[in-house]
């Protein structure tokens, strides 16, 4: 019976592990999509201008063990409702967000709606993210929170490890790519890309995208397709630089225009890859 249960739980945890990556690889657009719970937006708004002050990046890069409070400096000292969460298991105060494990009883916690993806991944809230650091953080988090580690634990801990890892995956994917990272930052700033034919879309740019698409549709030749891919990637790099400058200046509107242009080119790039 025990063996059966164990097998069942393993299946469950494998299921979780398998679902997320294959799901997103089947739907390539997924990784570009800015996603964020409305609760997180509210949280950011409630911390207001202090948001960026609360997001440090100077945490030492150490392996994470269960029981450590990740990103665990009392950075929330300025927040209106500091550390009002307590451990669901032992009731100990959890302190600074994001907290993945209870500092007292080492039990895994549910995700904190107030954490932004930047909080979770322990990055500065800036467009120029250190990708290698992001990757290390991702691996560390997944290593300590992966559902496989909790197959012997209580049902609730298993659930929390699943939701935590799913959220970490989302945070990582969003921050990894410049476009999704930029769109997420716009969303944090309360700016959204228009749904309709935006005023953003200037004719010259659209014409360029149209021509690239037409060339790509016509060509049967892999080399030409690669050429197009190369030029698109060049444009994307250039745009990424410009977006970075805009964000550094705090100019969300120009970042929005540039990110919209990026979106078109990313679509072309994806077609080239196909």
């Amino acid at each position: 019976m025990q063996a059966l249960c164990k097998a069942g739980l393993r299946c469950l945890s494998w299921g979780v592990r398998n679902v997320t990556p294959s799901f997103s690889s089947r739907l390539p657009y997924l990784k570009m999509v800015p996603t964020m719970s409305s609760a997180a937006t509210v949280a950011l708004k409630s911390t207001g201008g202090l948001g960026s002050a609360l997001l440090g990046s100077d945490a030492p890069d150490c392996p994470i063990k269960p029981g450590t409070v990740l990103g665990g400096r009392p950075r929330r000292g300025l927040c209106a409702t500091p550390g009002n969460r307590s451990c669901w298991s032992c009731g100990a105060a959890l302190g600074a967000t994001p907290v993945f494990f209870c500092p007292d009883c080492e039990v895994v916690q549910s995700p904190d709606d107030r954490s932004t993806y930047f909080d979770i991944m322990d990055c500065d809230k800036s467009f120029s993210v250190d990708i290698r650091k992001l990757q290390r953080r991702y691996i560390h988090l997944q290593r300590s929170l992966h559902p496989d580690n909790f197959s012997q634990k209580s049902q609730r801990e298993q659930e929390y490890s699943e939701t935590q890892t799913a959220l970490i995956n989302k945070a990582y994917r969003t921050l990894q790519k410049p476009l999704s990272r930029g769109l997420y930052m716009l969303e944090l700033g309360g700016v959204r890309l228009e749904e309709e034919t935006g005023s953003v879309a200037d004719q010259h740019h659209l014409l360029e995208v149209m021509e690239l698409n037409e060339r790509l549709a016509k060509t049967q030749n892999i080399e030409e397709a690669n050429d197009i891919g190369l030029s698109v990637r060049g444009k994307l790099e250039n745009l990424t630089e410009q977006v970075n400058t805009s964000f550094r200046k705090g100019d969300l509107q120009s970042a929005k225009v540039l990110l919209a242009q990026m979106k078109y080119f990313v679509n072309v790039e994806e077609k080239v890859e196909q």
Binding site: E194, E196, L207
Partner: peptide, 13 residues
């Protein structure tokens, strides 16, 4: 007429 949708990156002529 050449238009585009910034949110999804579609272009239409």
């Amino acid at each position: 007429g050449l238009v585009g949708a910034p949110a999804c990156g579609d272009v239409m002529k």
